[in-house]
Design a protein around this nucleic acid. Structure first.
Lengths: 168, 168
DNA sequence: TATTGTTATACTCTATAACTATA
DNA sequence: TATAGTTATAGAGTATAACAATA
C-alpha cells in the first residue's frame, strides 16, 4: 500500500530515461573537450574508423559507419582541410579514393585518446574501480542484446534523428 | 605485457562511449514509439513537467526546463494544436499565460507512460530484475555526481548542442 | 548499366534579437 | 524600466535526387 501524495504520482525515472539523459550528458561533455581541437564527435568517429581501415574508400567507410555518401563528402572535406586525412587516388579504380590518415591525423587521434581518458575518469568519478567494471559489464550486455556495434557510435547514422525531407 | 596486434591497438570502448551510444539508442527507440502519437520526446518533457506544475507560466516552465522563450512558443503551439495543453489567461498578470493540461493531455500522458514501460522492458531485456536494480543504482550515482536533475532530460536544454549562430 | 564521389536543394531544429503588450 | 510572450531571421546539420566520371 502506497501513501497518497499531494502531487500526481510521477513514476521514478527508469533505466531508459537515466541512460538517455546520462548518455546525452556524456556526449556533450566530450564535445566540449573536443572543441579546442576544432573537431566534433562525428569527426572522431571517422578518424577512429579510418585508423583501423587505412586505404578504405569514402564509400566503404561511409557504409561501415552508416553515413550516406553526401555527408561523407563534407566530413572528409573538413578532415582534409584540417590536414588530418588525405584523399589518394586509387590507380586500380579511378572512381574511388583511398583514404589515409596523415601523421597529423595520427597525432590528433593520440590527443583525442588522452582527452577521452580524462573524460572517462571525470564521468565515472562517483564509482570505484569495481563498480565501474560492473557498470561496463551490464551496459555491454544491453548494448549487445540491442544489436549495437561495439566501436561505431549509433549517432553517426543520423538518418533517424531529426527527420530529413520525407522522401517526396 | 601485451601481445602485439596486427592492427593498431584500439582501446576498448569505455563507460563514456558505451553510455553515450546506448543513451542515443534508447532515445531513438523512444522517439519511434512516440511517433504514432504525433509527439517527439521534447513534447513529452514539457507535458510531464506541466503535469507537476499546472498553471505555471510559459516562461517559468521554460526556465525549469532550460528552454528559451522562443522555443517554448513553438512547443506550446504544437501541444495546443494537438489539444493537449491550454493557454489560459492569468487575470492577475495579463502578460503571462497559465498553462494547463487538457483531459486529452492527461490521457496522452497515460499512453506515454504505458509506452515507456514497454520501452523500458524491451531495453533491459538482457538483464534480470536484480541486475536492473544494480544498473539503475550505479547510473543514478553518476547522474547525481554529475549534477544532472532527476526528472528533466538534459537534451531539452539544447543550447549547447549543434551550435546556434555565434552571437554576432 | 552500375558505382564513386559531388553538387543542388530542401527541410528540421535551434538561438538571437527586435518587437508588442502589459506591469 | 522590466517582464511575458511573439515574430523574423539566420545558421548548423542532415537527406534526397540529379549529375559526372569511371568501370
Amino acid at each position: 500500500m502506497t501513501a497518497p501524495l499531494d502531487r500526481p504520482p510521477l513514476a521514478p525515472a527508469g533505466v531508459a530515461f537515466v541512460l538517455s539523459g546520462l548518455g546525452y550528458h556524456a556526449a556533450q561533455r566530450f564535445r566540449e573537450r573536443l572543441a579546442p581541437l576544432g573537431l566534433a564527435p562525428r569527426h572522431v568517429g571517422v578518424l577512429t574508423a579510418l585508423a583501423s581501415a587505412e586505404g578504405m574508400s569514402q564509400h566503404a567507410l561511409g557504409q561501415h559507419l552508416e553515413i550516406p555518401p553526401s555527408r561523407m563528402v563534407a566530413l572528409v572535406d573538413e578532415l582534409e582541410a584540417r590536414g588530418l586525412v588525405e584523399r589518394r587516388r586509387n590507380p586500380a579504380d579511378r572512381r574511388a579514393y583511398a583514404l589515409a590518415l596523415t601523421d597529423a591525423g595520427r597525432r590528433v587521434l593520440e590527443q583525442v585518446a588522452a582527452l577521452a581518458d580524462e573524460h572517462e575518469r571525470q564521468l565515472c568519478a562517483a564509482l570505484d574501480a569495481e563498480e565501474r567494471e560492473t557498470l561496463l559489464r551490464l551496459l555491454r550486455r544491453i548494448a549487445a542484446q540491442q544489436g549495437l556495434p561495439q566501436r561505431v557510435h549509433p549517432s553517426l547514422a543520423a538518418s533517424d534523428r531529426a527527420g530529413p525531407p520525407p522522401a517526396c
